[in-house]
C-alpha cells in the first residue's frame, strides 16, 4: 500500500500533462483546418452576410438606401413572375434529382456487385465526360436536341416524324435532360460507396432465410444503401435549383430558372436588393426541400421493413 501511495504523485503529474495535451486537441484541430476555415469564412460566410444585408435594403439607381425594409421579400414571394420561376426551378431540380438517382442506382449497383476486378476501371470510365468543359457538354446537347440536330435527323431518317420537332430544345425538358446527364456521375459515386459498405453476407443471410434476389434487394440492399441515395439526391438537388448556365443555353424562353432572374437583378435590372432577396428565399426553400427529401427517404426506408 505504501509503495502504491508513494507512486501516486508522479503518476498524477504525467496524467495532468496528458490532460493538458488533450485540452489543446481542439486547438490543434483548428490549426489543421484553419486555411480552409479562413477561406470559407472570407469567401462564403461574409458574402452571404452581405447578400442577406442587401436583401433588407433599397436601391435608388446607383445608391443604396440602408433603411430596413421587407419590401424585397414581398415582391419576391408575391409577384407572379418570381413565384413561377421559383416553382419551375424547384420542379426542374426535383425531377432532375429523381431521374439522376433512378438512373445512377443501377449503374452503381452493377459496378459494386458485378464490377469484379474492374471496379476502378468502371469508376474511371464514369469520370471521362469531365475531361471536357461543362459548357462543351451542354453545347453537345444542343447538337443532339436541335432543329437540325442528331435526334431530329435520326427520327426523320427512320420516318417516325415528317418535319423536325421544335419540342426537343429550348424548354424545361431540355434543361432536365441536360442536367440529368451532367450530374449522373455525382449521383453514382455516393450510391456506389454506400453499396460497397453493404456486407455481402447480409444478402446471403436474406437468401438463406428464403428471399429471392428481388426480395433480398428490396429488404436488405436498398434500405442499407439509403444513405447513399440521400447524399446523391441532395448533391444533385441543391446545386441544380440555382443552375444558371444550362437554362441559359438550352432552356430558351420556357426553361428560364430563378438563377437567371437573380443574375439579371444584379446585372441589367440593377436591383441588387431584390436579387439578394430572391437568393435568400431560394436558399431557404432549397434547405427545406433538402430536409423534406431526407425525411421522405428515411420514412420509405423504415417502411421497407
Amino acid at each position: 500500500m505504501t509503495v502504491a501511495a508513494e507512486g501516486l504523485p508522479p503518476l498524477r503529474t504525467t496524467r495532468a500533462r496528458r490532460n493538458a495535451l488533450l485540452q489543446s486537441e481542439p486547438v490543434q484541430g483548428f490549426a489543421l483546418i484553419s486555411p480552409t476555415l479562413l477561406y470559407a469564412l472570407i469567401l462564403l460566410v461574409l458574402p452571404i452576410l452581405v447578400v442577406i444585408a442587401h436583401s433588407f435594403w433599397t436601391q435608388h439607381y446607383l445608391t443604396i438606401d440602408r433603411t430596413f425594409t421587407l419590401e424585397n421579400y414581398r415582391v419576391a414571394l408575391t409577384e407572379p413572375i418570381y413565384r413561377d420561376l421559383l416553382w419551375r426551378s424547384l420542379y426542374i431540380s426535383l425531377t432532375v434529382s429523381l431521374f439522376t438517382v433512378v438512373l445512377a442506382y443501377p449503374i452503381a449497383y452493377f459496378i459494386s456487385f458485378h464490377g469484379g476486378r474492374h471496379k476502378s476501371l468502371w469508376l474511371f470510365l464514369i469520370t471521362i465526360p469531365f475531361w471536357t468543359s461543362y459548357l462543351l457538354r451542354v453545347m453537345s446537347w444542343k447538337v443532339i436536341l436541335g432543329y437540325n440536330g442528331v435526334l431530329n435527323s435520326g427520327l426523320m431518317g427512320l420516318g417516325i416524324i415528317d418535319e423536325p420537332s421544335t419540342a426537343l430544345l429550348y424548354n424545361s425538358s431540355a434543361v432536365i435532360i441536360t442536367l440529368t446527364h451532367a450530374w449522373a456521375a455525382f449521383a453514382i459515386l455516393p450510391i456506389f460507396v454506400s453499396l460497397e459498405k453493404v456486407d455481402r453476407t447480409l444478402v446471403e443471410a436474406a437468401t438463406d432465410l428464403g428471399d429471392d434476389p428481388l426480395r433480398s434487394f428490396l429488404r436488405v440492399t436498398l434500405p442499407l444503401s439509403a444513405p447513399g441515395i440521400i447524399s446523391a439526391a441532395l448533391i444533385v438537388m441543391i446545386p441544380t435549383v440555382g443552375d444558371y448556365v444550362t437554362p441559359k443555353l438550352v432552356g430558351g424562353k420556357d426553361g428560364v430558372m430563378i438563377a437567371n432572374t437573380i443574375q439579371a437583378q444584379f446585372g441589367k435590372a440593377a436591383n441588387w436588393p431584390l436579387g439578394a432577396a430572391l437568393s435568400v428565399t431560394t436558399m431557404l426553400i432549397v434547405s427545406l426541400m433538402a430536409g423534406a427529401t431526407v425525411l421522405i427517404i428515411r420514412t420509405l426506408q423504415r417502411m421497407a421493413r
Binding site: 456486407d199 453476407t201 447480409l202 443471410a205 436474406a206 436488405v220 434500405p223 442499407l224 426506408q301 421493413r305
Partner: peptide
Amino acid sequence: SYAIFPHL
C-alpha cells in the same frame, strides 16, 4: 459473422 441485419 452472424450477419445480423443492422437496420432491424
